[in-house]
Protein backbone atom coordinates (compact mmCIF):
# COMPACT_ATOMS: atom_id res chain seq x y z
CA UNK A 1 0.00 0.00 0.00
CA UNK A 2 2.80 2.35 -0.88
CA UNK A 3 0.65 4.51 -3.07
CA UNK A 4 -2.87 4.26 -1.75
CA UNK A 5 -5.20 7.06 -0.83
CA UNK A 6 -3.89 10.56 -1.44
CA UNK A 7 -1.26 9.75 -4.07
CA UNK A 8 -2.89 11.85 -6.74
CA UNK A 9 0.13 13.88 -7.83
CA UNK A 10 2.38 11.35 -9.60
CA UNK A 11 -0.53 9.92 -11.56
CA UNK A 12 -0.30 12.60 -14.26
CA UNK A 13 3.13 11.44 -15.37
CA UNK A 14 2.37 7.74 -15.59
CA UNK A 15 0.17 8.01 -18.64
CA UNK A 16 3.07 7.68 -21.03
CA UNK A 17 4.63 5.01 -18.86
CA UNK A 18 1.85 2.55 -19.57
CA UNK A 19 3.68 1.64 -22.72
CA UNK A 20 0.79 -0.03 -24.46
CA UNK A 21 1.43 -1.19 -28.00
CA UNK A 22 -1.77 0.49 -29.20
CA UNK A 23 -1.11 4.24 -29.17
CA UNK A 24 -4.69 5.14 -30.08
CA UNK A 25 -6.29 2.94 -27.46
CA UNK A 26 -5.14 2.59 -23.88
CA UNK A 27 -2.98 5.71 -23.94
CA UNK A 28 -6.05 7.84 -24.13
CA UNK A 29 -7.25 6.69 -20.76
CA UNK A 30 -6.06 8.25 -17.55
CA UNK A 31 -4.02 6.13 -15.20
CA UNK A 32 -6.22 3.35 -13.76
CA UNK A 33 -9.03 4.22 -16.21
CA UNK A 34 -10.94 6.74 -14.03
CA UNK A 35 -10.16 10.44 -14.29
CA UNK A 36 -8.44 12.10 -11.35
CA UNK A 37 -11.53 14.02 -10.18
CA UNK A 38 -13.54 10.82 -9.97
CA UNK A 39 -10.80 9.02 -8.05
CA UNK A 40 -10.59 11.96 -5.68
CA UNK A 41 -14.35 11.85 -5.09
CA UNK A 42 -14.20 8.12 -4.40
CA UNK A 43 -11.20 8.52 -2.06
CA UNK A 44 -13.12 11.13 -0.08
CA UNK A 45 -16.02 8.70 0.26
CA UNK A 46 -13.60 5.98 1.33
CA UNK A 47 -12.16 8.20 4.06
CA UNK A 48 -15.64 9.00 5.30
CA UNK A 49 -16.56 5.31 5.20
CA UNK A 50 -13.47 4.41 7.21
CA UNK A 51 -14.27 7.12 9.75
CA UNK A 52 -17.77 5.70 10.31
CA UNK A 53 -17.33 1.91 10.09
CA UNK A 54 -20.28 0.18 8.44
CA UNK A 55 -22.01 3.39 7.34
CA UNK A 56 -23.02 3.42 3.67
CA UNK A 57 -21.61 6.51 1.96
CA UNK A 58 -23.32 7.50 -1.30
CA UNK A 59 -20.97 8.16 -4.20
CA UNK A 60 -21.23 9.14 -7.84
CA UNK A 61 -20.79 5.74 -9.43
CA UNK A 62 -19.44 5.84 -13.01
CA UNK A 63 -20.06 3.66 -16.01
CA UNK A 64 -17.34 1.04 -16.15
CA UNK A 65 -16.40 -1.19 -19.08
CA UNK A 66 -18.19 -4.17 -17.56
CA UNK A 67 -21.85 -4.81 -16.78
CA UNK A 68 -23.51 -4.10 -13.45
CA UNK A 69 -23.26 -7.13 -11.22
CA UNK A 70 -19.78 -8.00 -12.45
CA UNK A 71 -17.97 -5.81 -9.96
CA UNK A 72 -18.43 -2.21 -11.10
CA UNK A 73 -18.29 -1.00 -7.49
CA UNK A 74 -15.22 -3.00 -6.57
CA UNK A 75 -13.38 -2.01 -9.73
CA UNK A 76 -13.99 1.70 -9.08
CA UNK A 77 -12.68 1.40 -5.53
CA UNK A 78 -9.64 -0.51 -6.73
CA UNK A 79 -9.02 2.05 -9.49
CA UNK A 80 -9.10 4.86 -6.92
CA UNK A 81 -6.60 3.34 -4.52
CA UNK A 82 -4.21 1.51 -6.82
CA UNK A 83 -0.75 2.82 -7.69
CA UNK A 84 2.11 1.56 -9.85
CA UNK A 85 3.86 -0.05 -6.88
CA UNK A 86 0.85 -2.15 -5.89
CA UNK A 87 0.52 -5.86 -6.48
CA UNK A 88 -3.04 -6.84 -7.40
CA UNK A 89 -4.85 -10.10 -6.80
CA UNK A 90 -8.43 -10.66 -7.97
CA UNK A 91 -10.54 -13.55 -6.78
CA UNK A 92 -13.99 -14.67 -7.81
CA UNK A 93 -15.68 -17.18 -5.48
CA UNK A 94 -12.21 -17.92 -4.11
CA UNK A 95 -10.72 -18.74 -7.51
CA UNK A 96 -8.03 -16.74 -9.26
CA UNK A 97 -8.70 -18.20 -12.69
CA UNK A 98 -12.37 -17.59 -13.47
CA UNK A 99 -13.42 -15.23 -16.23
CA UNK A 100 -14.28 -12.29 -14.03
CA UNK A 101 -11.06 -12.51 -12.02
CA UNK A 102 -8.88 -12.90 -15.10
CA UNK A 103 -10.58 -10.00 -16.91
CA UNK A 104 -10.32 -7.58 -14.00
CA UNK A 105 -6.70 -8.51 -13.37
CA UNK A 106 -5.85 -8.00 -17.03
CA UNK A 107 -7.77 -4.72 -17.05
CA UNK A 108 -5.65 -3.27 -14.27
CA UNK A 109 -2.42 -4.71 -15.64
CA UNK A 110 -3.23 -2.76 -18.80
CA UNK A 111 -4.61 0.55 -17.52
CA UNK A 112 -2.66 0.82 -14.27
CA UNK A 113 0.53 -1.04 -15.19
CA UNK A 114 0.49 -2.92 -11.90
CA UNK A 115 2.03 -6.24 -11.15
CA UNK A 116 -0.56 -8.98 -10.61
CA UNK A 117 -0.32 -12.12 -8.56
CA UNK A 118 -2.34 -15.09 -7.44
CA UNK A 119 -0.52 -15.39 -4.11
CA UNK A 120 -2.47 -13.84 -1.23
CA UNK A 121 0.70 -13.08 0.74
CA UNK A 122 2.30 -11.09 -2.09
CA UNK A 123 -0.71 -8.90 -2.91
CA UNK A 124 -1.17 -5.39 -1.57
CA UNK A 125 -4.65 -4.94 -3.03
CA UNK A 126 -7.06 -7.88 -3.30
CA UNK A 127 -10.34 -7.37 -5.11
CA UNK A 128 -12.77 -10.10 -4.16
CA UNK A 129 -16.16 -11.40 -5.06
CA UNK A 130 -17.84 -13.63 -2.46
CA UNK A 131 -14.80 -14.85 -0.48
CA UNK A 132 -12.15 -13.76 2.01
CA UNK A 133 -8.85 -15.59 1.39
CA UNK A 134 -8.07 -18.44 3.76
CA UNK A 135 -4.60 -17.15 4.51
CA UNK A 136 -4.82 -14.48 7.24
CA UNK A 137 -4.31 -10.97 5.89
CA UNK A 138 -1.69 -8.65 7.31
CA UNK A 139 -1.37 -4.95 7.99
CA UNK A 140 -0.94 -2.92 4.83
CA UNK A 141 -3.14 -5.11 2.68
CA UNK A 142 -6.45 -3.84 1.31
CA UNK A 143 -9.37 -6.13 0.61
CA UNK A 144 -11.90 -4.67 -1.87
CA UNK A 145 -15.31 -6.34 -1.96
CA UNK A 146 -17.73 -6.23 -4.88
CA UNK A 147 -21.17 -5.57 -3.45
CA UNK A 148 -24.44 -6.33 -5.26
CA UNK A 149 -26.81 -5.06 -2.51
CA UNK A 150 -25.31 -2.91 0.24
CA UNK A 151 -28.52 -2.55 2.26
CA UNK A 152 -28.96 -5.46 4.71
CA UNK A 153 -32.52 -4.35 5.56
CA UNK A 154 -33.71 -4.10 1.96
CA UNK A 155 -35.48 -7.46 1.77
CA UNK A 156 -37.71 -6.51 4.71
CA UNK A 157 -38.04 -2.77 4.18
CA UNK A 158 -38.20 -1.65 0.56
CA UNK A 159 -38.31 2.11 1.31
CA UNK A 160 -34.86 3.70 1.09
CA UNK A 161 -35.89 6.68 3.24
CA UNK A 162 -37.08 4.33 5.94
CA UNK A 163 -33.94 2.15 5.96
CA UNK A 164 -31.76 5.25 6.23
CA UNK A 165 -33.74 6.33 9.27
CA UNK A 166 -33.40 2.87 10.76
CA UNK A 167 -29.62 3.07 10.38
CA UNK A 168 -29.54 6.62 11.72
CA UNK A 169 -31.53 5.73 14.84
CA UNK A 170 -29.98 2.25 15.21
CA UNK A 171 -33.42 0.60 14.97
CA UNK A 172 -32.28 -2.87 14.08
CA UNK A 173 -35.07 -5.05 15.48
CA UNK A 174 -36.17 -5.83 11.94
CA UNK A 175 -32.88 -7.56 11.16
CA UNK A 176 -33.68 -10.13 13.81
CA UNK A 177 -37.11 -10.68 12.29
CA UNK A 178 -35.26 -12.12 9.28
CA UNK A 179 -33.33 -14.52 11.54
CA UNK A 180 -36.53 -15.35 13.46
CA UNK A 181 -38.20 -16.32 10.17
CA UNK A 182 -35.30 -18.67 9.44
CA UNK A 183 -35.58 -20.49 12.76
CA UNK A 184 -39.38 -20.65 12.55
CA UNK A 185 -39.18 -22.19 9.10
CA UNK A 186 -36.07 -24.37 9.28
CA UNK A 187 -35.38 -24.86 12.98
CA UNK A 188 -32.09 -23.02 12.77
CA UNK A 189 -30.64 -19.87 11.23
CA UNK A 190 -30.53 -21.04 7.64
CA UNK A 191 -28.93 -17.92 6.19
CA UNK A 192 -25.56 -19.07 4.83
CA UNK A 193 -24.35 -16.04 2.90
CA UNK A 194 -24.87 -12.27 3.23
CA UNK A 195 -25.17 -12.97 6.94
CA UNK A 196 -25.75 -9.57 8.62
CA UNK A 197 -23.09 -8.22 10.94
CA UNK A 198 -22.92 -5.46 13.54
CA UNK A 199 -19.85 -3.28 12.96
CA UNK A 200 -18.21 -1.42 15.81
CA UNK A 201 -21.35 -1.93 17.92
CA UNK A 202 -23.25 0.64 15.87
CA UNK A 203 -24.07 -0.09 12.22
CA UNK A 204 -25.63 -3.26 10.86
CA UNK A 205 -23.83 -4.05 7.62
CA UNK A 206 -24.19 -6.52 4.79
CA UNK A 207 -20.92 -8.42 4.45
CA UNK A 208 -21.76 -8.95 0.72
CA UNK A 209 -22.53 -12.49 -0.44
CA UNK A 210 -19.53 -14.06 1.29
CA UNK A 211 -20.38 -17.35 3.03
CA UNK A 212 -20.98 -16.93 6.74
CA UNK A 213 -17.89 -19.14 7.09
CA UNK A 214 -15.89 -15.97 6.36
CA UNK A 215 -17.78 -13.69 8.77
CA UNK A 216 -15.48 -14.31 11.75
CA UNK A 217 -12.49 -13.28 9.60
CA UNK A 218 -13.87 -9.75 9.24
CA UNK A 219 -13.62 -8.88 12.92
CA UNK A 220 -10.27 -7.65 14.21
CA UNK A 221 -8.72 -8.08 10.77
CA UNK A 222 -5.38 -6.21 10.35
CA UNK A 223 -6.20 -5.40 6.70
CA UNK A 224 -8.37 -2.54 5.46
CA UNK A 225 -11.70 -3.79 4.12
CA UNK A 226 -13.44 -1.61 1.51
CA UNK A 227 -16.84 -2.31 -0.04
CA UNK A 228 -18.04 -0.86 -3.34
CA UNK A 229 -21.56 -1.19 -4.77
CA UNK A 230 -21.56 0.27 -8.28
CA UNK A 231 -25.20 -0.09 -9.24
CA UNK A 232 -26.49 0.98 -5.82
CA UNK A 233 -23.87 3.77 -5.62
CA UNK A 234 -22.69 3.08 -2.08
CA UNK A 235 -19.29 2.67 -0.45
CA UNK A 236 -18.66 1.38 3.05
CA UNK A 237 -15.66 0.15 4.97
CA UNK A 238 -14.31 -1.74 7.96
CA UNK A 239 -11.04 -0.27 9.26
CA UNK A 240 -8.32 -2.57 10.65
CA UNK A 241 -8.92 -4.19 14.02
CA UNK A 242 -12.62 -3.29 14.15
CA UNK A 243 -15.17 -5.29 16.10
CA UNK A 244 -17.48 -7.17 13.69
CA UNK A 245 -20.11 -9.43 15.22
CA UNK A 246 -22.57 -11.66 13.40
CA UNK A 247 -26.14 -11.16 14.63
CA UNK A 248 -27.81 -14.08 16.42
CA UNK A 249 -30.21 -15.10 19.19
CA UNK A 250 -29.12 -16.01 22.71
CA UNK A 251 -30.56 -19.52 22.29
CA UNK A 252 -29.51 -19.83 18.62
CA UNK A 253 -25.90 -18.60 18.55
CA UNK A 254 -24.04 -17.84 15.32
CA UNK A 255 -22.21 -20.83 13.86
CA UNK A 256 -20.22 -21.33 10.65
CA UNK A 257 -20.62 -24.13 8.14
CA UNK A 258 -18.80 -27.44 8.70
CA UNK A 259 -18.04 -30.33 6.37
CA UNK A 260 -17.65 -34.03 7.08
CA UNK A 261 -14.85 -34.27 4.53
CA UNK A 262 -11.49 -32.62 3.99
CA UNK A 263 -10.32 -31.05 0.73
CA UNK A 264 -9.88 -33.90 -1.74
CA UNK A 265 -6.80 -32.30 -3.28
CA UNK A 266 -4.82 -30.80 -0.42
CA UNK A 267 -6.42 -32.44 2.61
CA UNK A 268 -7.22 -29.14 4.36
CA UNK A 269 -9.82 -29.58 7.09
CA UNK A 270 -10.26 -25.93 8.00
CA UNK A 271 -11.07 -24.26 4.69
CA UNK A 272 -14.29 -23.45 2.83
CA UNK A 273 -15.07 -26.34 0.48
CA UNK A 274 -16.84 -26.43 -2.88
CA UNK A 275 -18.61 -29.56 -4.00
CA UNK A 276 -17.49 -30.87 -7.41
CA UNK A 277 -19.54 -33.49 -9.26
CA UNK A 278 -17.20 -36.15 -10.71
CA UNK A 279 -19.53 -38.32 -12.79
CA UNK A 280 -23.22 -39.04 -13.27
CA UNK A 281 -23.22 -41.95 -10.82
CA UNK A 282 -23.13 -39.87 -7.64
CA UNK A 283 -19.36 -39.46 -7.51
CA UNK A 284 -18.30 -36.17 -5.99
CA UNK A 285 -15.52 -34.52 -4.11
CA UNK A 286 -14.98 -31.45 -2.00
CA UNK A 287 -12.16 -29.04 -2.80
CA UNK A 288 -10.99 -25.76 -1.33
CA UNK A 289 -12.78 -22.80 -2.91
CA UNK A 290 -9.60 -20.75 -2.38
CA UNK A 291 -7.41 -21.98 -5.26
CA UNK A 292 -4.30 -20.19 -4.02
CA UNK A 293 -4.64 -21.73 -0.56
CA UNK A 294 -5.11 -25.20 -2.04
CA UNK A 295 -2.21 -24.83 -4.47
CA UNK A 296 0.14 -23.53 -1.79
CA UNK A 297 -0.68 -26.45 0.45
CA UNK A 298 -0.16 -28.98 -2.33
CA UNK A 299 3.18 -27.37 -3.20
CA UNK A 300 4.18 -27.92 0.40
CA UNK A 301 3.42 -31.62 0.05
CA UNK A 302 -0.06 -31.87 1.58
CA UNK A 303 -2.32 -34.23 -0.31
CA UNK A 304 -5.95 -35.20 0.03
CA UNK A 305 -7.97 -38.23 -0.95
CA UNK A 306 -7.68 -37.60 -4.70
CA UNK A 307 -4.69 -35.29 -4.64
CA UNK A 308 -2.02 -37.95 -5.14
CA UNK A 309 -3.35 -38.93 -8.52
CA UNK A 310 -2.58 -35.82 -10.53
CA UNK A 311 -4.44 -37.03 -13.61
CA UNK A 312 -7.65 -37.62 -11.68
CA UNK A 313 -7.35 -34.24 -10.11
CA UNK A 314 -6.76 -32.48 -13.41
CA UNK A 315 -9.69 -34.24 -15.05
CA UNK A 316 -11.99 -33.71 -12.11
CA UNK A 317 -11.21 -30.07 -11.68
CA UNK A 318 -12.17 -28.11 -14.76
CA UNK A 319 -10.48 -25.00 -13.44
CA UNK A 320 -7.18 -26.82 -13.22
CA UNK A 321 -7.62 -28.38 -16.63
CA UNK A 322 -8.25 -25.06 -18.29
CA UNK A 323 -4.86 -23.68 -17.40
Amino acid sequence: MTSGIGAAEPMQTTRAAIGDSDPDGADRYNYAYLDEQTKRMIRRCLLKALAVPGYQVPFGSREMPLPYGWGTGGIQVTASIIGPDDVLKVIDQGADDTTNAVSIRRFFARVAAVETTEATAEATVIQTRHRIPEQPLREGQILVYQVPQPEPLRKLEPREGETRKMHAYAEYGLMHVRLYEDIARFGRIATTYSYPVMVNGRHVMSPTPIPKFDNPKMGGNPAVQLFGAGREKRIYAVPPYTDVRSLDFEDHPFAIQRWDECCALCGAGDSYLDEVILDDRGGRMFVCSDTDHCGTRRARGHTGRLGADAATAAAAKPRGAAR
Binding site: Y180, E181, F249
Partner: peptide, 21 residues
Protein backbone atom coordinates in the same frame (compact mmCIF):
# COMPACT_ATOMS: atom_id res chain seq x y z
CA UNK B 1 -44.22 -11.38 3.80
CA UNK B 2 -43.30 -12.20 7.40
CA UNK B 3 -44.99 -15.06 9.26
CA UNK B 4 -47.68 -14.39 11.87
CA UNK B 5 -45.25 -15.22 14.69
CA UNK B 6 -42.64 -12.89 13.22
CA UNK B 7 -45.20 -10.11 12.99
CA UNK B 8 -46.07 -10.43 16.66
CA UNK B 9 -42.41 -10.82 17.65
CA UNK B 10 -41.19 -7.81 15.70
CA UNK B 11 -41.95 -5.28 18.43
CA UNK B 12 -40.30 -7.50 21.05
CA UNK B 13 -37.17 -7.65 18.93
CA UNK B 14 -37.40 -3.92 18.31
CA UNK B 15 -37.16 -3.26 22.04
CA UNK B 16 -34.18 -5.57 22.39
CA UNK B 17 -35.44 -9.11 23.07
CA UNK B 18 -32.80 -11.49 21.68
CA UNK B 19 -34.05 -14.84 22.95
CA UNK B 20 -35.87 -16.86 20.29
CA UNK B 21 -37.63 -19.19 22.72
Amino acid sequence: DVSAGGNVGERLMAVGDRHYG
